[in-house]
Amino acid sequence: MNIFKYIYLFIFSMKRRDFIIAITSLALASIAGGVIYFDNEGNKYCGEVKIIDSMGRTVYVPKEINKVVALGPGTLGMIIYAGGLDKISGIEQIELRNMWGQDCWLAYHDKFKGLPIVGQGGPNATPDPSAILTAKPQVIIEDQLYAQVMDPNQLQEETKIPVIVVYTFSPKRIGELGPNTFKSSMSLLGELLGTTDRTNELNEYVNSLVNDLNSRTSNISYRPSVYVGGLPYKTGSEGFLGTDVDFEVLNLINTKSVVDNLGWSPGFYNIDFSYLLRTQPEFVFIDEGNLETVISEFSQNKQQFCSLNAFKNGNVYGLLPYRWYQVNVTNQFLSAYYIGKNLYPDNFTDVDIFSLANEIYIKFLGINIYSNYLKYAPGYVNISGNFQC
């Protein structure tokens, strides 16, 4: 029996109503250039807008999106930066903890309460299709880490909901987020969420910050040596020796860390204290997300820390958290300005870090959260008083 006879028998075995529905659905999909999705309740909708996500996948989504869920490190923050706060219909369990080091949590954690839980969350978590469905999203947005532990096409098949992967970290550089990757992700989210005016404005602002920092620091004859410690990574609770080679904050001000001279590949490392004793960085900056850990280490080995000139000379400064289940892009730029102001004061005389914090937080989040941070951390100040040598 040839293929045409199969089709003939299939069509005429259908009820007239089902036949009409099938033909109509196919016609709509053809006209829209999209695909038909069916949710678990049998309701159908047309994916009529083509989106190319960060992984290069082609995904068809509804023309108007009002409900999304965010999965994985950094995804929630990126959606909020992109102007999609009111579209979030479910939340990961981890986002309901005290995540004070995360800028979007400080700004909007009250809005997360009462939302359906769509999974446990965390850097090693796996998407939970059944939990995701409780939030009834039109689109699932996830980061590249989640895409590694479960194929986004598999998640899409299991939930019958379009899955968009957005880079929340630079490609092949988990834990860092460069301006170009950030802008690309903003453009993707703006197109997806219908907030292109917002994301275009934010990308232009990012360009202005990058250009301003570069113009202030590109032609400097003397660059003091610097070390940034206490940087968190996957577990979050790293000590003083936790640092980054090729740290994006320092890249913004054309500055190298002493650890960049090790010749290691870019990324996070726990280094040996002996290396700092040999290189003697003139300035030390500590991520205040791990400040209590560093203070505890200091109390247990005061003599070693006080062998560093930066500690003896009072050149130890605090930075608001850079990573906390996301890269805080707000603090990334603020920290670049603060480090630049201390290393190259003549080039930053017009910069008031507190006024700048107000501007940056409002631009990215719509609200100034600097005073909220001060409930948990010293802020952008000299913190040598915590390390009396």
Rank of each mutant, 00 (worst) to 15 (best):
N301W: 02
L250V: 05
T217Y: 08
N211C: 12
G101P: 04
L277K: 09
I295E: 09
P152C: 11
T255H: 13
G230D: 09
V259N: 05
D86N: 15
E288I: 05
A70F: 03
L213R: 03
V327E: 13
Y361S: 03
P345G: 04
K50M: 11
A27I: 15
V284F: 06
E297F: 04
G90A: 07
G190D: 06
C104W: 07
G84N: 06
Y146R: 12
Q304W: 07
N203E: 10
V316R: 04
I21S: 15
I339L: 09
I367P: 00
L213Q: 05
S170E: 08
V249G: 01
P179L: 04
N301G: 12
S30L: 15
G47Y: 08
R17K: 15
Q148P: 00
I353K: 02
N66Q: 12
N382D: 14
K312Q: 15
P152L: 12
N290G: 09
T24I: 11
V245I: 14
K183M: 13
G72N: 02
N331Q: 11
L76P: 00
G318V: 07
V210T: 14
K234S: 11
S54H: 04
G236M: 02
T75F: 09
T255C: 12
V118T: 10
D350P: 07
N2A: 06
A29N: 05
Q156A: 14
Q154H: 02
F354P: 00
P152D: 09
V259G: 06
I132R: 00
P73T: 12
P152I: 10
L202I: 15
E359Q: 13
A357K: 00
P116I: 10
L26H: 03
T255I: 05
V249L: 06
I20V: 15
Y373N: 05
K375G: 00
S384N: 10
N66F: 11
W264Q: 11
C104V: 15
F273D: 03
N309D: 15
N342G: 02
Y269G: 05
S25N: 13
V329S: 11
N200W: 00
S355R: 14
N261V: 03
S54W: 08
F247Q: 08
Q300H: 13
I20Q: 14
N207A: 05
S215G: 02
Q144V: 09
T126Y: 10
D260L: 04
N66D: 14
N219I: 03
F387P: 02
D346Y: 08
F10A: 15
K183F: 09
V149W: 00
D103M: 07
D350H: 04
F112I: 10
N207Y: 11
Q120C: 07
N290P: 10
P224G: 09
D346M: 06
L26T: 03
A377W: 01
A147L: 01
E157I: 13
Y370E: 12
G366H: 06
S184H: 05
Y361R: 01
S170D: 06
Y344E: 11
Q304V: 01
E201K: 14
N98S: 11
V118G: 07
G101D: 06
T217H: 10
I88P: 09
Q148F: 04
G340P: 10
Y373W: 08
D110T: 13
G84F: 05
I65Y: 07
E288L: 06
E292M: 08
I94D: 02
C46F: 09
F364E: 01
G178W: 10
K256Q: 14
